[in-house]
Amino acid sequence: MNTRKALVSGLALCAALATSASAETEMGIVVKIGGIPWFNAMEQGILERAEELGVSAEMIGPTSADPALQVRAIEDLIARGVDVIGVVPNDEAALEPVLTKARDAGIVVIAHEGPGLDNVDWNFELASAKGFGEAHAELLCANAEKPGSYAVYVGSLTVPLHNAWADAGVAWMGENCPELTLVGERYGVAESVDDSRSTTLDLIAANEDLRGILAFGSQGPIGAGRAIDERRLTGQVHVMGPFSPGQGRQLVQDGVIAGGYMWNPAEAGRVFVTLGNMLVEGAEVAEGTEIEGLGVVSPDAETRNIITDNLLEINADTVDGLAEQGL
């Protein structure tokens, strides 16, 4: 199996080498896993932007979300002598040694969704935990009839990112929207359509003044939306949260899901190439630098993080376009 994989990637490398011109800037971006809609969209962004800038860039998606496969892919890129390596890490700690090796070889290293990585030139994020949670809370406050109550769902009570979103959202609600009160802390049901559906039915039964559900976790908005549709409370109870546009399309159009935010993987792909090209050309990233796709940034030189809030709203107008991209 491993030999075969090595052979296949070897062949792919030869093909790539044969086609790329020698002087051109070369980039390789290793993502978590290949073949899923999220990273297909990212690949599209990478290829488009590379063509616009006249550089050569390719995305490498391992067959499974395995840090060891990412390490091997990065080693191949180092051996090939590319100018830029981009990575969306599966496991930050597992990548540190090979990224050190890449930087020692003079290669620019850029990461996305890897805020804890040390051996990178820059890590960029299109959404901050605080901004993401607050954006959803604002949406809730704008839609829900007041006074009333709302509930918060997370993927599980132990998922750090979801709970950070929930913390930010709840804090914002407390300060800016006190007429809506939180019921029952938070429910760890949002990775399952069935669980979030039956919890929503229970909460509707228990709280007559329930006006909204802030659902973090990919299945939460869908399950909660189905329950509200079932109880025929569309327009009285609103759901918001991040979800897959293809999955939630109908519910958004029916007005059950008020909306949600995500970040655009295609945009992340474009930023990889833009930022990589800038760094190869010797540009510095500092306070106030404008980077296409990220806007004016304020990087943290200490942790090497560039955190921005470039959220993409999913609503009745945008959902079809996003679903068509296969997201």
């Binding site: 009570l157 019921v183 029952g184 802390e185 938070r186 429910y187 760890g188 039956s198 919890t199 229970d202 909460l203 039964a205 228990a206």
Partner: peptide, 13 residues
């Protein structure tokens, strides 16, 4: 049991 806990408003934790 699960339904009752939700209706009673017991902490999900």
């Amino acid at each position: 049991t699960q339904n009752g806990l939700n209706l009673l408003g017991v902490s999900p934790f």
